[in-house]
């Protein structure tokens, strides 16, 4: 049996060239190592637990024993009141979710177009490329709050015929305008990291410029920028709250109404909790995708 080891015959395609001798039991050395590893693992987790308790405990004690704590917990953590207004805040959060869905879809399309225009080398696109560059530079350089105010109050002031005065729609537009600039840059960076040899291979197969982009460059680029795009999605969810300054009743606005009625800030804490409920899982997921994509790139580097 052991003679079969190696690449003796021409047809090494059918079975595995190596055969393992059935069952295996760990040797004494390995068993010893395992015991040592386990002991060290136990010690490590003990140290971690002790230090966590010490640090977090100290922090909690400092906060709770501070002179203002009683006052603060009454205004920020009055749970009974918090749960009373919770339905209103959740309803408001519906507006944030709706804004996010609409904005994310439009941003994906508009951002992609901007990125494609900016990376294109075709001479016919030149004027658009300049415009896209200016667009991205301008809207990445202005605080989003300002853009929301300018669009939300500026456009109705123009009194254009047929243009909406609906703050909800104007708010969405402002968010889309800003985030498209961010997302365009992320996608563009992804396109630029695809190695030129991939393009050369595609072109030498006879694929056109557009086909190369569509089937070879973009799929790789988008896969690479998925983690930063997910990060932008988390930011987008939070930033939809900014449209509340236009008077859109989102979670933040709902909390603001509730708290101004009772001079208690618990509704804000509730709103924060609701945002966290959505953003934390998404952040964790982003983290996992990032690690996976790094692993994949490492694997490709080794091949």
């Amino acid at each position: 049996m052991s003679q079969e080891v190696g690449r003796g015959s021409e047809n090494h395609s059918d079975s595995t060239p190596y055969s393992f001798g059935g069952s295996w039991t760990p040797s004494a050395v390995e068993l010893e190592r395992r015991i040592a590893r386990k002991a060290r693992g136990r010690k490590n987790s003990l140290v971690a637990a002790a230090s966590s308790i010490l640090v977090l405990g100290t922090l909690a004690t400092i906060v709770v024993t501070s002179p203002g704590w009683k006052n603060l917990s009454d205004t920020f953590f009055k749970w009974a009141y918090g749960f009373e207004v919770l339905p209103k805040i959740i309803l408001g959060f519906g507006a944030n979710v709706f804004l996010t869905v609409i904005a994310a879809t439009s941003v994906a399309i508009f951002g992609l177009i901007l990125a494609l225009v900016r990376t294109s080398r075709s001479p016919a696109i030149t004027p658009f490329r300049i415009l896209a560059t200016i667009y991205v530079d301008v809207f990445r350089g202005i605080p989003m709050l300002l853009i929301i105010l300018l669009v939300g109050f500026g456009i109705p002031a123009l009194r254009l015929k047929g243009v909406t005065n609906n703050v909800f729609i104007l708010g969405i537009c402002a968010v889309i305008i800003t985030y498209s600039a961010y997302v365009a840059e992320v996608i563009r960076s992804g396109i630029l990291t695809v190695h030129p040899s991939q393009r050369a291979a595609a072109r030498s197969l006879g694929l056109s410029n557009f086909q190369t982009l569509r089937y070879v460059v973009l799929p790789q680029a988008l896969r690479r920028v998925t983690p930063p795009l997910l990060n932008d999605l988390v930011s987008l969810i939070k930033d939809t709250g900014l449209v509340s300054i236009l008077g859109v009743t989102d979670a933040i606005r709902a909390a603001q109404i509730a708290s101004s009625r009772s001079f208690n800030y618990t509704p804000y804490v509730m709103a924060a909790g609701i945002f966290l409920l959505v953003t934390i899982p998404l952040t964790r997921y982003t983290d996992r995708t990032l690690r996976k994509s790094i692993d994949r790139q490492n694997a490709q580097g080794l091949a």
Binding site: S197, A201, R203, S204, Y215, V216, P219, Q220
Partner: peptide
Amino acid sequence: RRKLGMVFQSFNLFPH
């Protein structure tokens, strides 16, 4: 290019 085949030193298979 449709009439020519080219193979590169670095393979350049499409990884996706």
